[in-house]
């Protein structure tokens, strides 16, 4: 047994060598701190760039789905949320189970660039060092070091991990062909639910104020929609022109309608990966409402998306015995 990255490369190499897959989806190190680039590894020679750590914050299942063509056989390094996305997309008939070789990787959350930036007051990071995944997962280390022009600081990982990771209930792939270093598998995020609970305690006026503030930051770049693995409509409702359902400006009424429609459209399908929030260049909190709806759906319908490739999303199906107390 080597390191997580060595084992991951070995697995990918085996799949490529045996022609079990056409390509392997993973991350390679990015060109700036805390960013990685999703990549389709097609040759064994490329695999020394394959890497997995807390900077791998993109939803790789979104990358896979976007590039998937019928008949493709694809391997993927899957965090819990990547795997749940794949399962959910299978439930939505986007690709068959046998087309994808899921290699589960042990995950302890991904970093939120904006949290790091806020923590440092905008000071640019020139160098950083993250402990190895093994050290973090086994609880030996819980900080990262950042260095800039005239500072060097240690930051607690828990302070800069994405919000959704703090409440993640499935850090490990619920369905995988192989799992890298099973011993390091995390069962449930150890982070606190404080932030979601705080939101739940808000009055409806406070929530309105909170979301108005958030959506007023939107610049309509659609990075959230395009980073979302479940926003794959051939034509998004905002791109309809006959009729055009709502305005395209950055007026709050327009941005709010867009975000609320999007959230409702992915409700009972959203697995809370947080890719939307991390993709947003202006730091709009998009994941809170999604996670909250997730919770509601779980309570009402006993349904959690992304666990069973054979089960349709709660809001896309109807069961006679489900709670109907909301019907007057």
């Amino acid at each position: 047994m080597g390191t997580i990255n060595e084992d991951l490369r070995k697995q990918a190499q085996k799949l490529l060598a045996n022609k079990e897959i056409d390509y392997f989806v993973g991350c390679r190190q990015g060109t700036i701190p805390f960013r990685s680039a999703p990549h389709a590894f097609r040759t064994e020679a490329e695999l020394d760039q394959l890497t997995f750590d807390m900077t791998c914050s993109n939803n790789l299942a979104q990358f896979l789905h976007k590039n998937y063509k019928k008949g493709d056989k694809i391997g993927i390094a899957a965090k819990g949320c990547d795997a749940r996305t794949l399962i959910q997309l299978m439930a939505e008939n986007q690709f068959p189970r046998e087309a994808i070789k899921i290699i589960g990787v042990p995950c302890c959350g991904v970093l939120d660039q904006k949290k790091i930036r806020d923590k440092l007051g905008g000071k640019p990071v020139l160098k950083y060092s993250l402990p190895s995944m093994e050290e973090i997962l086994s609880g030996k280390k819980d900080t990262l070091t950042v260095e800039g022009k005239d500072f060097k600081e240690e930051i607690k990982l828990a302070d800069v991990v994405s919000n959704n990771c703090l409440v993640c209930e499935y850090p490990s792939a619920p369905l995988a062909d192989t799992f890298i270093q099973e011993g390091l598998k995390q069962e449930k995020a150890s982070g606190s639910m404080n932030w979601l609970e705080k939101f739940e305690k808000m009055s409806s006026d406070e929530r309105w104020e909170y979301f108005s503030k958030q959506y007023s930051k939107c610049i309509r770049c659609y990075a959230c929609r395009n980073a979302c693995p479940f926003c794959y409509c051939e034509q998004c409702i905002v791109d309809d022109s006959q009729p055009q359902w709502f305005g395209k400006s950055t007026n709050l009424s327009d941005t709010m309608v867009f975000h609320i429609i999007r959230t409702l459209h992915v409700a009972s399908r959203c697995i809370g990966c947080g890719a939307c929030t991390r993709a947003c260049p202006t730091g709009v909190d998009l994941v809170t409402l999604g996670l909250y709806l997730d919770k509601e759906i779980k309570e009402r319908f006993g349904y959690t998306p992304g666990l069973d490739p054979g089960e349709l999303p709660a809001l896309c199906t109807y069961k006679e015995d489900e709670k109907q107390d909301f019907i007057m």
Binding site: A37, H39, R220, C221, Y222, A223, N226, P281
Partner: peptide
């Protein structure tokens, strides 16, 4: 392959 075709860069 990886471009999201979003407008973050342009905006």
């Amino acid at each position: 392959q990886r471009c999201l075709n979003c407008g973050a860069c342009a905006y």
